[in-house]
Simulated scan of single mutants.
Amino acid sequence: MTEQATNSAAEDQAPQFSLQRIYVRDLSFEAPKSPEIFRQEWRPSVELDINTRHRVLEGDFQEVVLKLSVTVKNGEETAFIAEVQQAGIFLIKGLDASAMSHTVGAFCPNILFPYAREALDNLVTRGSFPALMLAPVNFDALYAQELQRMQSANQIPA
């Protein structure tokens, strides 16, 4: 009986991670210069902005949101602006603060990115523009850069 109780307590303390749901939280597309933009030679320049945020839901559930914002210009004119907020609900428990921070700041966005990239690509092609084909993103490196920036600004302990 004691061994069973010990095993149950150990299982409760063991780290757990489970993806519960992936969904589009917000989606927008704007082509302010259409239809004139379609009659011009296509020489696009792409600006990509990536942000993440998370919030604690009830219990050990976390919502993580990956936001991709793309502005594409053709010469000096804005061809389109597209944005997707891809979200996921994750069950995460048994992690210390550092591991939890890395999980919601890098691991979860890595899971969400392919879904966000596909949603953004689909949105852009529906606007009659060429597919974006965004390159993979190293969220671990972005997370490390953000930690370093925050540490140098004395916003978090080392």
Rank of each mutant, 00 (worst) to 15 (best):
E11M: 10
A31W: 07
E76C: 01
E30F: 05
V56W: 00
D121C: 08
E11W: 06
M1Q: 07
L91A: 11
A5E: 14
V104A: 04
S34A: 14
N51C: 00
C108Y: 08
A82T: 10
F139T: 06
S8A: 13
A116S: 08
D49A: 13
W42I: 03
N122V: 12
E47L: 00
A97K: 05
A99R: 13
A141V: 15
P44Q: 04
Q62G: 02
F107Y: 15
K67R: 07
S28R: 09
V46A: 04
P32I: 02
S18I: 04
D26H: 12
I81E: 14
E41V: 11
D12E: 10
R43A: 13
L142R: 03
T103N: 10
F139E: 03
M150I: 02
A97V: 14
G75P: 07
V56S: 12
F129M: 07
D96R: 06
L91V: 03
R126P: 02
P136S: 10
R21K: 15
N110R: 09
F17E: 08
Q40A: 06
I156G: 05
V84I: 15
Q16W: 03
T52C: 04
M133Y: 14
E118Y: 08
E47Y: 01
A131W: 06
R55P: 00
S34I: 01
F139P: 08
V124R: 11
A31G: 11
A106L: 02
S8R: 13
Q13D: 10
E3F: 05
Q13R: 09
M100I: 00
D12N: 05
L123P: 11
A153R: 12
F38C: 07
A97C: 02
V70D: 09
Q4P: 04
A31C: 05
F129A: 08
R43Q: 15
L27H: 01
L19F: 03
A116K: 01
S8C: 00
Q13L: 09
A135R: 09
Q155S: 04
A10Q: 12
A10I: 14
F129H: 06
P130D: 12
E36V: 05
I89Q: 05
F61M: 04
Q86D: 10
N51S: 15
A79Y: 07
G94P: 09
V104M: 03
N74G: 01
A131S: 15
P44R: 01
E146V: 09
V64W: 13
N74R: 02
T2G: 03
A119F: 01
F90G: 05
R53M: 03
N110H: 14
W42R: 07
Q40N: 10
G59M: 03
V64H: 14
N154V: 09
V84Y: 08
L147Q: 14
L147D: 06
